[in-house]
Amino acid sequence: MEIAYTVHARPDTGVYNAKLGMWLFLASEVMLFGGLFSAYVFLRVGAPPDTWPQGWLNVPLGTLNTLLLAASAVTTFLAWAACKARRLDQFKLHTGLTLLLGCIFLGIKGYEYHDKWTHYELRLKDGRIAEGHLVGPKSTAEAVVLKGRWVEDRRQLLDGRRSRGTWQELTIPRADIDRMQNYAPRHNTFLAIYYTMTGLHGLHVLGGVVVFAYLWGPGSRLWHVDPEHFTNRVEVAGLFWHFVDLVWIFLFPVLYLS
């Protein structure tokens, strides 16, 4: 049984089913991320003074990721244009590039997560505070080795911009430690929302990569049967991917730059 307007646009609405369906889905996605962005602003505006960190994230890497994702958005656009021009080779090339860029994006994101996950804040029993990266191989049952710095006041931790240069190796006996916590989501509200939003976004990137891998590989068989239908699929997948890029375009300044 055949459903009408799966391939060709309905004359009065001017769209085919999957396109409308995808736009509806994206509308709901706008509200999903809209809810999270609202939560971010709400929590940030309501945060008690001197609790919101700044410059904790790696801006060069974030910028690079922004550019990578923008480039991949352009390549999906070209993949679709290639399909419309009936150039399967160009489609494969551009989709391959999209896949590659998407994977690099995820790799960089994974590195950033790892970097935060191994970043510790140590509170000593005498009230001193240390922060820095755990040097795993050197840490023992008796002492923790950090590459980091001492701070007098917890508020100094909040500004992450100007400290990296001065970091050195600190060896701290475990017996002195009162509390040791890594920069996991539970550490503070900023990290909580950072992990939640970028994590959800990362899942979307992953989803997009899977879809494009399918279209690039086994899905492209449809090309030989019904190129128009296949072109539609590429267009719709592209819309999704562009949306994922759009979300990042806002995530980057909101999380990295402010």
Binding site: S28, M31, G35
Partner: peptide, 14 residues
């Protein structure tokens, strides 16, 4: 359903 549910999904995730 389409436009009101997602913010709850966001809240649910949080």
């Amino acid at each position: 359903l389409l436009l009101a549910f997602p913010p709850l999904e966001a809240a649910g995730i949080m």
